[in-house]
């Protein structure tokens, strides 16, 4: 009999799921493209004119050209960088806040719990889209404002889930056993409970990532997002006027690029949930 930690077991289950593995590969490819692009190794010359205005897709220009004769393909790649960076930034802001507040509230209860519950109830009472457009408007349009806005909205779900799960685990006998051998609060919470609820962070991040991408596209479409750089949202905004002239490739390029990453994250979230915590279904 071989020995496996629960993580390894979960990974083996995940690896058996071909569709999930394929989705993971797609996600990794997108990350790879985004990193190369942000290092300036690819698509750094996206603003160059490569041909005539509004050329239809061809072997030379995969996704055609836009009104200024720029390659739509390169713009899609630049947009990938923007979209992925938003997902990463939102996670970097949301995870520490959500996990810390959720864990403290769930573990200690009492007034800490009352305060944290009030805080996330308040934040979730303002509809996300209102909070997003308000924050980006106030902080001044641009990618930085989008990061902050998404960070400020996406910690809420994670916090709620972690709080609930920590409350459940707090009562389990293994945590009581840790107390019985002399372990303090810090050990019980961070060494025992958190590793047992950490899968929620992974599942939630995978779900929040697609929300972040979708939100960035909408904010950029509304003109609140990235300025002076292509994003899938601004490309769709361009397409709004182009479509009647039969220029459909900007819309198609952005939609197709978005479709695959969202699809991959959708499938991956489901597969992660099944592999890591089948009980989380429907929450």
């Amino acid at each position: 009999m071989k020995t496996n930690s629960l993580w390894k077991d979960a990974f083996i289950r995940l690896a058996k799921d071909k569709l999930a593995l394929f989705s993971l590969v797609i996600v990794l490819i997108y990350f790879f493209i985004a990193i190369l692009s942000s290092l300036g190794l690819i698509a750094s010359d996206w603003s160059q004119e490569v041909g005539a205005s509004n050329l239809a897709p061809s072997m030379e220009h995969f996704f055609g050209t836009d009104i200024f004769g720029r390659s739509v393909f390169l713009k899609v790649i630049r947009g990938t960088q923007v979209a992925m960076s938003v997902g990463v930034a939102a996670s970097i802001i949301a995870i520490p806040i959500g996990v810390l507040l959720g864990a403290l509230a769930g573990y200690f209860g009492g007034w800490i719990d009352d305060f944290v519950t009030w805080l996330y109830t308040t934040f979730s009472s303002v509809p996300n889209i209102m909070l997003l457009i308000s924050i980006t408007l106030i902080l001044g349009k641009g990618i930085f404002a989008v990061y902050i806005a998404l960070g400020a909205t996406s910690w809420v779900t994670l916090c709620r889930l972690i709080r609930g799960e920590v409350m459940k685990h707090k009562e389990r006998e293994y945590v009581q056993a840790a107390g019985a051998i002399g372990g303090g609060h810090f050990r019980k919470l961070f060494r025992h409970i958190l590793p047992n609820v950490s899968h929620i962070i992974i599942i939630n991040t995978s779900m929040q990532f697609q929300i972040a991408i979708k939100s960035e596209v909408i904010l950029s479409y509304l003109g609140l997002g990235v300025q002076g750089e292509p994003s899938w949202g601004t490309m769709i905004d361009d397409a709004k006027l182009e479509l009647v002239r039969g220029v459909w490739w900007q819309l198609a390029g952005a939609t197709v690029a978005m479709f695959f990453i969202l699809l991959a994250f959708n499938i991956l979230s489901d597969a992660l949930r099944d592999a890591l915590d089948p009980k989380l279904k429907g929450k």
Binding site: E173, Y174, A177, A178, G182, H192
Partner: peptide, 20 residues
């Protein structure tokens, strides 16, 4: 705690599943 110990009822939930 060194002198007094406890053995719980449920052998499934009284061991931390993430520790060897």
């Amino acid at each position: 705690r060194k002198k007094m110990q406890i053995i719980f009822q449920d052998p499934y939930s009284s061991l931390n599943p993430r520790m060897t």
